[in-house]
Amino acid sequence: MPPHPETWLRVTPSGLFCEPGGFYIDPQRGVDRAVVTHGHSDHARPGHTHVLATAETLAVMRERMGEDRAGVTQQPLGYGQVLDINGVRLWLRPAGHVLGSAQVCLEWQGSRVVVSGDYKRRPDPTCAPFEPERCDVFVTEATFALPVFIHPPADHEIARLLRSVELFPERTHVIGCYALGKAQRLIALLRQAGWDAPIPLHGALMRICRLYEELGVPLGELVPATVQGKQKLAGAIVLAPPSAIADRWARRLDDPLPCLASGWMQVRQRAKQGGVELPMVISDHADWPELLATCAEVEAGEVWVTHGREEALIHALGLRGVRGRALHLVGLGEEEEDE
């Protein structure tokens, strides 16, 4: 009888700890050995001694926190390559969340756990698609774990945006979006929809976009929004962090029409806060049906929920005969409150 994962994968104040392997997954404070699922700052913290992640995630960490804080040693691991760490078999599978995002698959004495990190199941031209892996315990996020969250197809939302640009050609559509992942996916979706114009960017988005291009994700012509004249920005689609679209930064735009691309935009009251005029439901997380389908697909008898709206998900899994457990991991989901 293989050992129950509870006996070898524990919740500690620093995060999930694999005892026989001696490493943490997405630890919230500096540790000796960290496995990092992806580069968002609530998962990739600075100050670890050894960091194991995909080459892309390591590159993102170096870009965002600087060489010296992104781990004393960095060990890249490709998807599907298997390591043996003190008898724990470890490999990575694509999570489809952002470039380089990975699920951490662990097997010890015949007992298998998949720590998915954040993930989505929709096509994303900027990263590898999610690959389900059978396991005994599936560790999932629950950011959008309410049945009201059913994300529409992203190309519908892009089409609404383009219709709005047509209807208000004298205004500047400025889309609030998260700097890592969402911004690049939006640009790629716009390019797919035929939007060939240069895309002006807020300074905070430029570095990660350049990094994506260096890592082989083409994004077309990108220009800094700040050096454009107001007139030149009329009719443009500009990308900026969510905090900037209705604040002082946006004053340099000509009659800006604030848009926000986030899964939270599904709910109007939430969308109405902050002066958004065009909410766009585009999410890099699994929606409700996808969370349930993924839990079923990996055939796990038990699902652990790291962060988000665990109550609804655990209830729904219970109705399907799957045991759910809330891990209440502190710190996760913080950076992505606005995705």
Binding site: L146, P147, V148, V267, Q269, R309, E311, A312, H315, A316, L319
Partner: peptide, 12 residues
């Protein structure tokens, strides 16, 4: 499901 409806209504 009544529980899921209540959680959803509460949120929305």
């Amino acid at each position: 499901d009544p529980t899921l409806f209540a959680l959803s209504y509460d949120y929305v």
